[in-house]
Design a protein around this nucleic acid. Structure first.
Lengths: 233, 233
DNA sequence: GACATTAGTCACCATGGGTGACTAATTCGA
DNA sequence: TCGAATTAGTCACCCATGGTGACTAATGTC
């Protein structure tokens, strides 16, 4: 049996802390997932690159801040913005914020290459040095994307509105980090009623033209079992 | 093609915000999951009950704050503390914090009943009115527990170190909100190598005595498929 | 026209897992 | 003392899930 403290919680006097909102912008480039980094603003910073961030302002919600930061950095609204987690440890952060809330933002494939030298897409597996807290945020964002593959339309937000099934499979392979069998992938996809065919076909390069599909989830019967694509709406 | 903003992000001057850390303490009582609430400290508050919380202090990490808040409220260290998410919207919060970080904390079954009238375990499905932001935190914590059932030893932290398989199944049924078939549950559990038998048996009440098990996850072969208990370490 | 290349489908089969029925060991009451 | 009730634990049947290789289809290239 634990000791029993006084029933009401001990409260400290209200204190103000510095808070930042950081965004991990992701987009596929070829067969690799890439992150948008900006050149560090502080010339004295050891690190040369950092995630887009801003201090939290009381006027907006943190989601609004994240969306604004993403739009400012990338130049357009991302296809999806979701919170990853709050990071409130003592690891270094560009703003030296007490606490930073990380968001992940997805941009469909085919994003324009960054203009100047102050913005660049870096492959996830070949990142430059960034502040340790932001490094943890990037890892957390990747983990979040992977774990939400079946709960959130993450894969579809990394593609344009219409896409071929081969493109979709490539995204899944990218995120899962392993090859999938074509027949299995399509069978599961069909069973999940996540996409519907359009009447367009894409004939690019050699090979048979592929039919274009769009993301159009349908109500599912209440089957509880099954793994892939479960719970996606 | 989106418009291109100046390459470097716009930064606002560092601003300080109020930040709270709130804890959703959960424990099973009978066949129901319950939450620990304390009586509101502010006598003018509309709500009479609230989640244990504290303002963030720069000296600790938010995880440390959460653990301290949980220990102070419950009277002992919980079996597991994990972050749920940051809530930075405009919903009302007891501390009127700009941003609140919610944590979930698990206490094994058999927790002592609260002493005074200032602390009470409320069933999840019969909660009193709490501030809207805290209400969202409670819902988020339950969702987090459910979604982490297969990734984190959540179920085992709601049980004492040794337990019967029937007890474990009850916890899973509690969290999933549906009945499970005994044979299926045990087959999957066996395949996952999550528990090992002790040489103790519990003979309480009528019926055949049950063998006691302990949580002792073993390395799994790299099988990728399968649902239940996957990824649990 | 042969061939490479990519799309799309099929059928086979191992495994996962839902299910009912069985046995085992205990308490309780007649 | 014995049988019913109760809880633990296991087995075997069988269908659905999903891995796999091989096939056909439609295009471009040489």
């Amino acid at each position: 049996m634990p000791d029993r403290p006084p029933a009401s919680s001990v409260r400290s006097a209200a204190r103000r802390a510095t808070l930042s909102v950081d965004v991990v912008l992701l987009t596929p480039h070829g067969r690799r997932l890439t992150v948008l980094l900006t050149r560090a603003t502080d010339p004295k910073a050891k690190e040369r690159w950092e995630l887009p961030w801003d201090s939290f302002r009381g006027e907006e919600t943190i989601e609004e801040t994240a969306t604004r930061v993403a739009r400012t950095a990338f130049g357009a609204a991302p296809a999806l913005v979701e919170q990853v987690a709050a990071f409130g440890d003592r690891r270094r952060h560009p703003a030296a914020a007490d606490v930073s809330v990380a968001f992940l933002a997805l941009v469909p494939a085919g994003a324009p290459a960054p203009v100047g030298g102050d913005l660049a897409w870096f492959p996830m597996d070949d990142l430059p040095v960034v502040a340790p807290r932001q490094r943890a945020m990037i890892d957390g964002a990747l983990q979040a994307v992977r774990s939400r593959l079946d709960q959130s339309p993450v894969a579809f937000r990394l593609l344009p509105p219409t896409f071929t099934l081969s493109q979709l499979q490539e995204i899944y392979e990218l995120l899962l980090g392993r090859r999938l069998h074509k027949a299995s992938f399509r069978r599961a996809l069909h069973a999940a009623w996540l996409v519907e065919p359009t009447d367009e076909w894409r004939s690019e390069g050699r090979g048979r033209p592929a039919q274009l599909f769009r993301y159009a989830p349908k109500k599912r019967r209440g089957g509880r079992r099954g793994v892939r694509f479960e719970g996606l709406a």
